[in-house]
Design a protein around this nucleic acid. Structure first.
Lengths: 224, 224
DNA sequence: TCAAAAGTGTTAGATTTACACCCATGA
DNA sequence: TCATGGGTGTAAATCTAACACTTTTGA
């Protein structure tokens, strides 16, 4: 029994914009497409939605397949559905972005999948409408960062305030005043100073902080 | 020749959250579902995406079919894709919201389609995940209204400042100070005072304003 | 000893909020 | 004449933005 048999079905895929932060830059994982159509073109990593899984599950599964990571921060970017967006067939794709700490991504697994981190500022032309997906993902992520402290997802558990500031600068694309930034971040109260010192970034060393989930509640009004 | 034949296809539909503003309230068009499954349940109006149309076109076509209106302000809300969201079959749906001036909607056409305007604050339980779609649409719309003057889409060409304020209050859900509101709106400069007076709202009468497209540019920072 | 990053407060300016009275009119 | 909604400005409080020097240490 089918209720909707007079209508036509289409393929639905998910495409993932995986953001990472390294060398002071916001980066995205992209690779050369391994299948036709478009083999060899730079592309986001994606997969098809199976009949028995939700679109969120499809996205989670796809990211896990690529990175081996679970429990990532992921959000839907939106559905992309021009008729001819895919050169082969009619495929509607739903884009998701994920935030990961690049250090958590096993290097050999990355090479195995032939993907690489590329600075979001100078991405090449990507397959189909993937550039558009990245722009929109970036815009949404930037907006999210302004209202919720999701930046921690892109950093190691312990980080310095300078690293955090650089992250905010990379995402928003603008320079921030050091004193104002630290004042505001500390006032928020969702980071916690540790007694540990990071000496990789300077001779003097900088205190390491960690995100304090308990101090952060959705209801409080976070503002940059 | 099919590239993706090993993957399964699914039905994709669009569901439309049509917002209107009347009697000082933000309203949504809903109706009793006319087909199985779920016949008789309150529901958004929707339709299937055809093989040869984009998802945006499908949404536009669906809204036009219901209201007879074209060139509406419409935005995608997102894709909804739980496996069992539709009780009949596996259907992935993409929600869109549209803003219309209720006066532009022909009353007989509305009755013909058996839909009605219902206050967004006290919607009944809707079919499938439609309540969730409405909440998300509302959230997005509220956010949009804060940064772009889209409110005019919900009003007649000519409107009073009180009407405009009531609209903002209905959308954001909070009371605004009359003087502060007028000050800010006027400072923005994208409304234009006419010499016309509306006497329907008061004995004294209030000046009618119109939206000035030329004065509004995306680049300027509009803030409530 | 010096280069390089870490750390720290204050002030002026801009923005936001709170607030109250007179006006014009139709009933 | 009075009840109703229309229309207007100012001052206090808050928030934002600009700004410069001292500290520590490894090379």
């Amino acid at each position: 029994m089918t209720y909707y048999s007079q209508h036509s079905k289409v393929w639905v895929s998910v495409d993932c914009i995986i953001f990472g932060f390294d060398e002071g830059q916001l980066k995205v994982l992209i690779g050369r497409r391994q299948m036709e159509p478009g083999r060899g073109e730079w592309s986001l990593y994606g997969g098809f939605v199976a009949a028995d899984e939700s679109i969120d599950d499809a996205a989670t599964r796809t990211v896990a397949k690529l990175t081996g990571l679970n429990n990532l921060y992921m959000r839907q970017v939106g559905a992309f559905g021009s008729v001819d967006r895919d050169p082969g067939e009619r495929v509607i794709s739903i884009a998701y972005y994920a935030l990961i700490n690049v250090k958590d991504y096993d290097e050999s697994l990355r090479r195995e999948h032939a993907v690489e981190w590329m600075n979001v500022e100078d991405l090449p032309r990507l397959y189909s409408d993937h550039n558009e997906m990245v722009s929109k993902a970036r815009k949404l992520m930037r907006q999210k960062l302004r209202t919720e402290p999701v930046g921690f997802r892109l950093l190691p558990t312990l980080f310095t305030l300078t690293q955090l500031q650089k992250l905010y600068e990379a995402v928003t694309g603008e320079q921030l005043d050091k004193r104002n930034f630290r004042k505001r971040i500390k006032d928020m109260g969702f980071i916690e100073k540790t007694e540990l010192i990071d000496k990789t970034g300077s001779k003097r060393g900088a205190f390491l902080y960690r995100f304090n989930k308990r101090a952060y509640r959705e209801d409080q009004n976070f503002k940059l």
